[in-house]
Structures are given as structure tokens and as C-alpha cells.
Amino acid sequence: MSRESDVEAQQSHGSSACSQPHGSVTQSQGSSSQSQGISSSSTSTMPNSSQSSHSSSGTLSSLETVSTQELYSIPEDQEPEDQEPEEPTPAPWARLWALQDGFANLECVNDNYWFGRDKSCEYCFDEPLLKRTDKYRTYSKKHFRIFREVGPKNSYIAYIEDHSGNGTFVNTELVGKGKRRPLNNNSEIALSLSRNKVFVFFDLTVDDQSVYPKALRDEYIMSKTLGSGACGEVKLAFERKTCKKVAIKIISKRKFAIGSAREADPALNVETEIEILKKLNHPCIIKIKNFFDAEDYYIVLELMEGGELFDKVVGNKRLKEATCKLYFYQMLLAVQYLHENGIIHRDLKPENVLLSSQEEDCLIKITDFGHSKILGETSLMRTLCGTPTYLAPEVLVSVGTAGYNRAVDCWSLGVILFICLSGYPPFSEHRTQVSLKDQITSGKYNFIPEVWAEVSEKALDLVKKLLVVDPKARFTTEEALRHPWLQDEDMKRKFQDLLSEENESTALPQVL
């Protein structure tokens, strides 16, 4: 008996699950189920560990084997000379395990699969056993689809999209007709009724959600790893209520002995410091949205989908001078704002400069500016000194954290500008005749005249004003913003236009 009217009423009120309206889709043409990776026989039982391990490696599972009696060998002398080797079968990115008779397991190899009674669906509900069930008529011709799209860092995100009359449910929550939600590992998919569980979705590319604290899981769906560094790992996640993407940084307390840091400095109150950081608001710094204190720290951040500045300059790639100017102007505005709010970044580098898009002209935002507030000064500097390429001379020669101030950030900005303009770092371990530390503390950077011949004198002058060993003589952010190279009204107008595109209400910060 159909429950279409009941569920449609529920759909009209929406769902609290991570779902959002989605535009129309072009329906895929039908194809045989076997060619799409559906096993030839149905099963109602969950797999054992041996079955799972075989399939996850990209080899055929026991459900897909063919009797050897149906095959015969071709003698080598009868092999056609022009026969080309077969292409290897792509490894599946996800697996659906059937929970009921009449449904088959599915190895997801393609990027898009339609499910329903219509014969054009890649996964067609046409098993005779299924057709005899009382629920068969409640399934729509095109009930739902599972697909994946390219996300940040060229990774993939799996989604389920509801197109049914009676509802598609993920972990008992209604997706909603015309809406989608991301699928995470071990999600249970039910059709027409929330208790009519048909599939379990296994994402073969992500970790299980159960490793994360419950308070975090209640608000966010964790997904793929976006990156990792000395101070922690960053994962893509989704807000459950809105389906908006965020980035979540995970900082290990054990790695940084944060408990010991608190004992050594009783004034170090991470929760208080995070609340201060959350109040920071500038178009060129990453917004801190939320914070969870569990076995590790979880910092929920605004997501930038254009990648890191590092990706644009790695491998001796240089940027156009006009692009360097647009990016560097924004970096200076961001660091100036942090300094005005009493925050020294201490870890400025291309990896911590994020881009809003893949376009050459785009907004940038500074991230990882609050680590000293979370990890403690000593722990952070011990970590950073392991990779000193961007560290100021006074940091390398000081004991502990004494003896330096916000000028350290201006040195790091000078190193970043040098790399963007030239395509190579000013200080490098590859210069074996002088140690990296000695290069930095003496201010002897690697200047290649033929490379810098293409760079304007004004740009080079600003680099020199920032890479000054004496912090008292080094340019401040205010002085850098007043430098002739940055007195470019076309560049500032472009920045204002980019801000307006992102948010019509965002105004250009005042600069002296």
C-alpha cells in the first residue's frame, strides 16, 4: 500500500538533515546492470571481512566470479597478432551492500547512478522477487541517484539526491524531493519508509565518522582530508542543518603536550582565546566558526575552494607581477588587521594563504593565525623552527619566545613576496656552502639577476625593505602599504570589485 501522500506532506515541511535544493538533472540513458558494476546475484546478508577486503582492492568479489566451465583457453599460436591488451577495470570509489532480497550489490565505478523502476536507470528495480513485494509499487520510476562531484583539492564528494514520490531516507532522515545531501561511510539508505532499509553505503575513500566526538558529529558530517601540516590535519565537512561546506582543523593534544602547556602557563585558556579569535572579522582572514574541545581540538573554519598559494608557486613557478601585487596587498591588509588586534601570526607561508577560486584574479585569505593562542608560545615555536624557511632572523637566534615582536610577520611576508615574484625561495638548504640558518640570520638571500630583470624596481625595493635583518629597521605593514609599488588604483579597484562580488555589503578597509 502506498504512503505517498503521508511522505509528500513530510517532504513539504523539509528536513533537518544536511540537504539543499538542487537544479534539474539530465537523465542518464539506460545500460545493462552488469556493465555498471552490479553483481549478477542479489543478497540479503552483509559481507564478511574477506569479501570486503577483496573488493576494496579493486579485484572481483566472490559475488562477481564466473564459473571456469564457461571459459576456455586460447593457445598462444592462435592469439590474433593485432589484439590489444584489455584496459584494467577501474577501482570502485564506493560500494552499496544490499540489505534485502531482490536488490543486488553495487560497485560504484562510474560517477553517476540512477536507481528506480524505469529501465533507463543504471540500477533498475526489475528483479522478479522484488516485483512480488508489497513495497515495489511505492518505488518511483526514478527514485534517487548517487553521484560524486569534484571538491576541494581535486578530491571527490559523494551525494545522494531524492527524486521520489514516497521519499528517500539516509539514516532515517528524509532527504526531500529535489534535494541532495552528502553521503558518508556506513550510511543506511531506506526507500519509501524510513524503516525500509535497502542499502548500506560504503565510501571507500573516507574514514568512519565514529572516531570523532559526538558533539562534533551532531553538527557536522566529516568527509575527506584536505591537507595536513606540522600543526594538524584539515578535513572537509558539512553543516548538517545547511549542507554548507566547512573546513575542520584537528590539532592533536598529545603531539603538542597541550596539557603540560596549560600547567606551565595557567593563564592559557584555550576556550577564552578561541572566543576572541571567533570575533575577528576581516575579508582577508579565514573566519573561525566553531570550536570543540575533546581528546583533540577541532576548529571549524570557513572553507576556501581555490587551494593554497603554495600550489601556484611550487615547482619554480612565478606569478605575474600584477597578480603578485593583488595578492600581496590583501596579505598586508590581513596581517595589519591581526597586528591591530594584538595577534602575531608567526607562521606566514604560502600554505597559509588560501585562494577563493581558481581564477588568477581572486580574493585571498590568511589562515592559521591563532596557533600560539591554542598551542602555547613554546610549543608552537619548537614546531616552526623545524622548517625555518620563512622564519625571521630574530626568531632563530632567540631562546624560547623572548626578543621578537610583530616584525617577524613582515619578514615572512618579504619571503613570500620574493617567491611569488621570482619563482624560487630566497633562502634554501640546497645552497650547501652556507647553512639555512646562517643565510637567514645574515640576510644573504639568493639573488639571480636574469630572473629579477623581469621584475620592476619598485617591487624589488619593497622586497629589500622587508628582508632587513634588524627588526627595528624592517618595514611595518603600514609602511609597506604606503610603498610606491602598491599605489596602484587599478589594483585596488579590482580588489574592491572582487569584494563586491563576494558580498555587496563588504567595504574596502581604510588604508593610510
Rank of each mutant, 00 (worst) to 15 (best):
S2Y: 08
R3N: 03
R3P: 11
E4A: 08
S5I: 15
D6Y: 04
D6E: 10
V7A: 11
E8N: 13
E8C: 04
A9P: 06
A9R: 13
A9K: 14
A9E: 15
A9D: 12
Q10I: 09
Q10F: 05
Q11G: 11
Q11A: 14
Q11Y: 15
Q11F: 14
S12I: 07
S12L: 12
S12F: 09
H13F: 07
G14N: 06
S15P: 07
S16F: 06
S16I: 12
A17V: 08
A17N: 06
A17K: 06
C18L: 10
S19H: 11
S19P: 06
S19K: 05
Q20H: 03
Q20T: 08
P21R: 06
P21Y: 09
P21V: 06
H22A: 08
S24G: 10
S24L: 12
V25R: 12
T26D: 10
T26G: 03
Q27I: 10
S28K: 06
Q29K: 09
G30I: 15
S31C: 07
S31T: 08
S31F: 10
S32K: 07
S32Q: 07
S33A: 11
S33G: 10
S33K: 11
S33W: 09
Q34Y: 11
Q34T: 12
Q34I: 10
S35A: 10
G37L: 07
I38D: 13
I38F: 04
I38K: 08
I38N: 06
I38M: 11
S39P: 05
S39I: 11
S42D: 13
T43G: 04
T43F: 05
T45D: 08
T45F: 08
M46G: 07
M46Y: 09
P47S: 10
N48V: 05
S49T: 13
S50A: 13
S50N: 10
S50W: 02
Q51A: 06
Q51S: 07
S52F: 05
S55V: 08
S55Q: 05
S57L: 10
G58R: 12
G58E: 08
T59K: 04
L60H: 07
S62W: 07
L63S: 07
T65L: 03
T65I: 04
S67E: 05
Q69L: 05
L71F: 12
Y72F: 11
Y72K: 11
S73P: 14
I74M: 15
I74A: 10
I74Y: 15
P75C: 13
P75F: 14
E76H: 06
E76C: 07
E76K: 14
D77V: 06
D77L: 08
E79V: 11
P80A: 10
P80V: 13
E81G: 11
E81I: 06
D82R: 07
D82E: 09
D82P: 05
E84L: 07
P85A: 09
P85M: 10
P85T: 09
P85E: 08
E86T: 11
E86R: 06
E87M: 09
T89K: 08
T89W: 13
P90S: 07
W93T: 02
L96N: 05
L96P: 00
W97G: 10
W97S: 08
A98T: 05
A98G: 13
L99R: 14
L99K: 12
L99E: 13
L99W: 06
Q100R: 14
Q100K: 10
Q100Y: 15
G102N: 13
L106M: 10
L106C: 10
L106N: 11
L106A: 12
L106T: 14
E107L: 15
C108K: 02
C108N: 07
V109E: 12
V109G: 14
V109H: 11
N110V: 10
D111E: 12
D111N: 10
N112V: 08
N112T: 08
Y113S: 03
Y113Q: 10
W114E: 12
G116A: 02
G116M: 07
G116R: 03
R117I: 00
R117Q: 00
D118P: 00
D118R: 06
K119D: 10
S120A: 06
C121M: 08
C121E: 03
E122H: 12
E122D: 12
Y123T: 08
Y123G: 14
Y123V: 15
F125N: 02
F125A: 03
F125Y: 02
F125L: 08
D126I: 10
E127A: 06
L129M: 08
L129F: 06
K131C: 10
K131T: 07
R132I: 12
R132C: 12
D134Q: 07
D134G: 07
K135G: 06
Y136F: 15
Y136Q: 03
Y136W: 08
Y136K: 03
Y139A: 02
S140Q: 01
K141M: 04
K142S: 11
K142T: 15
F144H: 05
F144P: 00
R145S: 12
E149D: 06
E149I: 09
E149F: 02
V150W: 01
V150L: 02
K153P: 02
N154V: 02
S155W: 10
S155A: 12
Y156G: 05
I157M: 02
I157A: 07
Y159W: 15
E161L: 14
E161I: 15
E161W: 07
H163I: 12
H163F: 06
H163D: 13
H163L: 05
S164K: 15
G165F: 13
N166E: 02
G167W: 02
F169W: 08
F169T: 02
F169H: 00
V170I: 10
N171M: 11
N171F: 05
N171E: 12
T172V: 13
T172K: 15
E173K: 10
E173D: 12
L174D: 09
L174T: 01
L174W: 12
L174K: 07
L174G: 13
V175M: 13
V175S: 11
G176N: 00
G176S: 12
G176W: 03
G178E: 12
G178K: 02
K179V: 07
K179Y: 06
P182S: 13
P182F: 10
P182Q: 03
L183F: 07
N184P: 01
N185G: 09
N185T: 07
N185R: 13
N186G: 02
N186W: 06
S187M: 11
S187Y: 13
E188P: 06
E188V: 00
A190F: 00
L191Y: 02
L191H: 00
L191W: 00
L191R: 11
S192G: 05
L193F: 02
R195D: 00
N196H: 03
V198G: 11
V198I: 08
F199C: 08
V200A: 13
V200G: 14
F201W: 15
L204G: 07
L204T: 01
T205P: 13
D208W: 02
Q209L: 15
Q209S: 08
Q209W: 14
V211N: 15
V211I: 13
K214A: 12
A215I: 12
R217Y: 02
D218W: 14
E219G: 10
Y220L: 03
Y220Q: 00
Y220N: 04
I221T: 11
I221H: 01
I221Y: 12
M222H: 04
S223F: 08
K224N: 06
K224V: 06
K224S: 02
K224M: 00
K224E: 02
K224F: 14
T225K: 15
T225G: 05
L226Y: 08
L226W: 11
L226K: 14
L226R: 14
S228Q: 01
S228E: 00
C231S: 10
C231Y: 13
G232F: 01
V234L: 03
K235H: 07
L236V: 11
A237T: 15
A237P: 03
F238P: 01
E239A: 04
E239S: 04
K241S: 07
T242A: 05
T242S: 04
C243G: 14
K244W: 06
K245V: 10
K245M: 07
V246P: 01
A247G: 06
A247I: 01
K249C: 01
I250L: 12
I251Y: 03
S252I: 07
S252K: 10
K253E: 03
K253A: 04
K253N: 05
K253Y: 02
R254E: 01
K255S: 04
F256T: 06
F256R: 09
A257L: 04
A257Q: 08
A257S: 04
G259L: 02
S260N: 12
A261K: 03
R262Y: 12
R262M: 04
E263L: 14
A264L: 06
A264E: 03
A264I: 03
D265P: 13
D265Y: 15
P266C: 15
P266S: 12
A267Q: 08
L268I: 13
N269V: 04
V270R: 15
E271K: 12
E271Q: 07
E271F: 06
E271A: 06
T272S: 04
T272Y: 14
